[in-house]
Design a protein around this nucleic acid. Structure first.
Lengths: 224, 224
DNA sequence: AATGTTTGTTAATGATTTGTTAAGTTTTTG
DNA sequence: CAAAAACTTAACAAATCATTAACAAACATT
């Protein structure tokens, strides 16, 4: 377990303490002392999990968590909130904005590590639920798609074809195979429906359109 | 793909339906209507994957999944869970006990088969058997060709001829044999089409052009 | 070396496949 | 039930491919 953890706290002492504990546990640690720093670090350091103190100087931890969860690119980023006392309101608010867990101070380093590992296990899961191809990312659970950092809206057919191609992992899928993905009813008889979806999919993918490769005479595949 | 699938569901109708779908897709299917049956089948039938409904009469599917994952002999056995309508808790719980994927009802048979194959592919690891001749490598599944570390794009005819030559393993193939590879229809009457493809193939192969040897008066062969 | 045959190469063509847009259908939604 | 959205078909444009033709180079035989 060598995940990257961002710790956000405005107390330097606590930051140092947490930092040392987690580094000793084998994590790569980044730190931020303000909400602005935190958001910057998320973008540049790409942590796997954020440890967020509810009490911050400039912005409340809740606000940051809310921002992270409302931004498609970071909505999947696990957040664990640190609450001061066992304030139930903090806890409720924290979870309501989408935090994945909360820990009340004081806590032992062992507990902290255990909770982090539990969250990472739950999020990364036994199966990689986040599908991706290049900078195109798909979250099957929420059915959301992000291309080059921007969320795009796909209709059913487009989505099914994209997922099928990504799951194929670069292997070619024929028009017949792709059409089968569109639904059992197989209402249409022709294959061209696949081309039409590919076209609209590429249009929506914008700069990422190149992740879908045409294999002349055979079908389509994902270019990793 | 002729894997063995165990389907566990307490609804006979659904069991029958799934069974037929998967058999038609080429799988060998076993069925169980209870947790006890399921565990027995795992021992005796040795399935390659278990399809497990979360809702069962006697024991929850989650319990069975947990048992399978906690038993060393079956811990590696892939499990896909069938959850009723988008119940997120089912999903989270299912994944937390170690299921490899989950599918929410209702789902199409095409999706089911695709997910099963995806899981099997992931578990068994990539089985992409590659063709190669010297530093020229061909991946039939994606139809990609790499020469001296650089990917090159081949059109249909070039690709077919290259594959035919590599599969011949150094044996000479005549123009007639190579032309037969180009298509059943044998649209063209002349042999020269083969020469033309050989020429463009060599050009694209660049430094690797020497892997294709001309055998004057006979045909072509691969130089390993 | 001279000659006829086989092979290498390039460019041009017509055929096929794919891209794209728009217009008709069906399905979903309010 | 009507409007909106999604699905499907159709039609044409663009791209790509297969094939032929023509000529140059290499080879084999004398």
């Amino acid at each position: 377990m060598d995940a990257r953890i961002l710790i956000v706290d405005d107390e330097p002492d606590l930051l140092e303490l947490l930092s040392m504990s987690l580094e000793q546990a084998g994590f790569t640690v980044f730190t931020a002392q303000s909400g602005a720093e935190a958001l910057a670090s998320v973008r540049t350091d790409r942590p796997d999990l954020v440890l967020l103190d509810v009490m911050l100087g400039d912005v409340s931890g809740v606000t940051i968590a809310g921002k992270l969860k409302n931004t498609p690119e970071t909505a999947q980023l696990p957040v664990i909130m640190l609450t001061a006392k066992d304030s139930e309101t903090d806890m409720v608010v924290g979870l309501s904005v989408g935090a994945d867990d909360y820990i009340t101070k004081p806590f032992s380093s062992a507990v902290l590590v255990a909770r982090i590992e539990a969250v990472l296990r739950r999020v990364n899961g036994p199966v990689a639920q986040r599908l991706s191809a290049g900078s195109v990312k798909v979250d099957p659970a929420s059915r959301r798609v992000v291309a080059a950092g921007k969320e795009i809206e796909l209709v059913g057919g487009e989505y099914k074809i994209l997922v099928a191609l990504i799951e194929a992992g670069g292997d070619i899928l024929t028009r017949q195979q792709l059409k089968d993905m569109l639904g059992e009813k197989a209402r249409g008889e022709q294959m061209r429906i696949v081309d039409v979806y590919i076209a609209s999919l590429r249009k929506k993918l914008g700069n990422c359109r190149s992740v879908i490769k045409t294999v002349h005479g055979h079908g389509y595949r994902i270019e990793k």
